[in-house]
Structures are given as C-alpha cells and as structure tokens.
Nucleic acid binder design. Structure first.
Lengths: 238, 238
DNA sequence: CAGTTACGCTACGACTCGTAGCGAAAGCTC
DNA sequence: GAGCTTTCGCTACGAGTCGTAGCGTAACTG
C-alpha cells in the first residue's frame, strides 16, 4: 500500500494561498523580517504529492469515505505532516480541486457565441472528472456552515471562473455584440447573474441530472442565453 | 437531552417511498399474500419524529457532523430502530429534505413571466433554509458514487421540480405565449435544458455565491430566460 | 558551529459506526 | 382469551477514524 516516498530534496513551498497553519503568519503577512525564514523549509514536493494523492483518493473512495490517514499513506507522507499544513479535510480538498481549474482559459474564438461555447465546454470537461464531481458539491455543502471555507472556495475557485465572464463581456462589447454598460453597479449585478446562470446550469446538468454537457447541449444552452442577453440588453436600451 | 418519547399508539407507516429495508418486500412488491402483514406495525409517529429530528440535527450540526446516534436521541428513538428503517445517513437525509419540497406548487398567475417568478421564488425560499442548504449539496455529492441514491433523489426531489417546468410550458402554450412543440423528443430536451438552467441558477446563486435570490434577482433572471426562450423559439420557427 | 523549523514515527483517548442479542410491547388470527 | 409475528428499547461490542503529543532525526540559516 505504501507508495514510494517523495524525493525530499526540495525548497520553496506555498504556491497558492499558503496552505494555512503557519504560526509565523498573521492575516497573510509574515511577522518576522521578510523571508527571514530560518530552519528546514517545507517540502514543495510533499505539497504536490499530497494534493495529487487527495485527488486519487477522491476517485477511489469519494468524499465521505476519504480519510486523511489514507491520503497521507498514498502520498508517502506522515499523517502529522498533513495536519501541520491543512486544518482539515475541507481545506485540503478545496486546494486539491482548485488545481483542476488552473487550465480554464478563454481563447478568443471571434464571436461571443463561440467564446461562451468554448468556456462552457471547458468547464464541463473539468466537472466530468470523478474527483471534481464528488468533491466540489461536498465542499460547497460544508461551506454553508463555515464562512472561512466559503471564502477559500471563493478566492481559489469561484473568482477565477467569474473573471472569464467579465473578460468575455468586455470582448463582446469591443466587438459591438453587446452595448457598453452605463451603470457600473448594474453591470456588476448582471455579470454575477450571468455567472450564476452559466455555472449553475452546467453543474446542475452534470451532477443533478447526471447527463453529459455535450456539444449539442452546450449549443442549445448558448443559444438561449445569447438571445436572452442581447434581447434583454436591447430592451433595456430602448 | 432525551426528548419526550414518541406517543406510540400508531398504525400504517410508509408514506413516501417505503423507507427501505423491509425484508418481506422485493422490488417494491410484497411477497406474502397482499397486506398479510402480521405482527406489530411500524410506528408512523416514529417516522415523522425521526425525519423532523434529522432536519433539526442538520440545522444544529450540519451534514458532516450529523450522527445517526444523535438523531435517534433527538427523536426519542433507539438507534437500532433507525438502522432498521434506513440504510444509512444518505438515505435518511434525502427523505428528510424531500419533505421540504412538498410545498412546491405552481399557481396560475396569468402569464409565463409571473409563473416563472413565482416558482423560482418558492424554490429560493426552500433553499434558504439552513437544513436544505447543507443537506442538498451533500447528498448530491454522495450520489455521484451511489447510483441507487441518485435514483432516490431523482424520484423524491428532482422529478417533482421538473414537473413544474412541464406544467408551466403547457400553460404558456395554451395562452399562446409559446408555440406548440412539433418534435416531442426535442420538446423533452428543451424542457430538461430549462430545468437545469432554472434550478442550477437558483442553487448556484444561493449556495455558491451565497447571496439571496430575492425579488430583484429573480426578476432579472426571469427576463433573460424569457427573452431567450421566446426569441429562440421564434428563431426555430422560421 | 548553534539555532530553528520540518519531518517520520509511535502511541494515545475520545468518538462514531453498524450489528448482535435480549426481553418486552403491540398488533393480528384463530 | 391463546398463540404467532414483528417491532421496539436497551446494552454491549469490535472496528475504525480523529486529531494531538512526544520524540529523535533531517534540512537549512547565519
């Protein structure tokens, strides 16, 4: 069962939001003189191995049966090391799943419709992975009673998706497909609405209806959304 | 801690889908001669007390910290009784939450827009309850690795919501707000799509974005959806 | 070199899980 | 009523997980 231990020649950890639990950090600021970090540094390879092991364990066991002890064994790391870096299962899984969303991009496909279809298909492909399926909803469920966890999800997963909406709209406005916004507050509200509609629809299709968000579905969805957006914008402009 | 024990003068259990685990039942059909159920009947009051206690425990503890032992104590019932009726935490919570959706209805408000707004607001009100928030996403997450559980969710929660979509469309077609469907297969696909968009958007808004689906939001959402539907339908009709 | 921090390992009490076994209670049929 | 059947409450149990403490060692800094 025990996998080959991680090669331990390492340096420099803390890629994303530092995995919590650094006694010398307060509010994200280092207390001691900048980078006066003495002592043995944390193994960055261990970080990577733990997050990868977490995803493997999610596929094998699912969320509820996943134990930190098993993840540690899988990563070739002591259980105590895991607890030194993450506060618990929730935080660990959020970081492990967040990496899946690193690949989300918004290539310019020339039209708003094509841009939407492209990003929705990317999002659907990520959600199609078993580790994302079982983990995403679970941590969201936990976050309803855990404000810091919700914040962690927001910054490391949700906001990155939301940025794509803003970028796509800016492009469409530059192309003349959408009218420029007059009221900035109203623009924010609309962007948030569109984000909830897009992300919510894909998630619901994939996880609740348990059917694939394939090209045909994405085309239908995009058409309705696009007609709704341009039509509603035209209404408002009158 | 121990609540007053359930009044035990009872009869006739099995309101919804019989809570599982009846050794004399196979595939939902009784094996012995019809209704030859001899012996002491299960307490229906205990069923109700258990489901209510489950919701209370969800509010107090959330999904992950909820234990069947605590639910049993809260309901004034032995833990073994609980295990005799439900296979586990997942099934119990699905039944407990499903009752929340009993109140979903679709009163005729005279127009498609008003009908959509009404049902979305109802759905949002249910999702606003803490027990629904923490439980719904959790069981959906579990269902990604548990086909029977997914089926249970589908029949006792999802399908009931979906029926409202079909009913709303039929009304709108009767009013002439939407064109009648020609291809029945295409009609099914469109209904499923709309359902995913509506339910997904509300869930995402409430749980992921963690902001209320209030009247203003619902109005904006309905406008986009309605324009998208009627516009796209008009496009297709050409 | 001394000082500091991270790591692997072992062990621990506390808790939950799901089940088994028992006697008593609550229905039904004859 | 007697007799049968099933449920109920209760206790007890082994198995497994949790999160932490303590220790000796490894890695890096000045």
């Amino acid at each position: 069962m025990r996998r080959p231990p991680v090669i331990s020649l390492t340096t420099s950890p803390n890629r994303r939001i530092s995995p919590v639990k650094r006694p010398d950090m307060v509010n994200g600021m280092q207390c001691r003189s900048r980078s006066a970090r003495t002592g043995r540094p944390r193994s960055a390879a261990a970080d990577a191995a733990i997050l990868a092991a977490t995803r493997t364990a999610l596929v094998e066991l699912g969320w509820s049966k996943l134990t930190l002890g098993y993840v540690a064994t899988l990563a070739g790391v002591a259980k105590t090391t895991l607890y030194r870096r993450w506060a618990g299962k929730n935080e660990l899984v959020v970081d492990a799943v967040a990496e899946l969303f690193d690949e989300l991009e918004l290539p310019d496909r020339g039209s708003l419709a094509a841009d939407i279809e492209g990003v929705v298909l990317q999002f659907a492909a990520i959600l199609d992975r078993p580790e994302a399926k079982t983990a995403l909803m679970a941590v969201v469920a936990e976050s309803t009673r855990d404000e810091p966890l919700r914040e962690r999800i927001r910054t490391s997963i949700v906001d990155r998706q939301k940025r794509l909406v803003l970028e796509g709209r800016a492009r469409a406005q530059a192309r003349g497909e959408l009218p420029p916004e007059s009221d900035p507050a109203d623009a924010d509200r609309t962007a948030a609405l569109i984000f909830d509609v897009v992300a919510g629809a894909v998630v619901h299709r994939t996880l609740v209806s348990a059917e694939p968000a394939d090209e045909e579905w994405v085309r239908s969805f995009t058409r309705i959304l696009l007609v709704g957006l341009t039509g509603a914008a035209a209404d408002a402009a009158q």
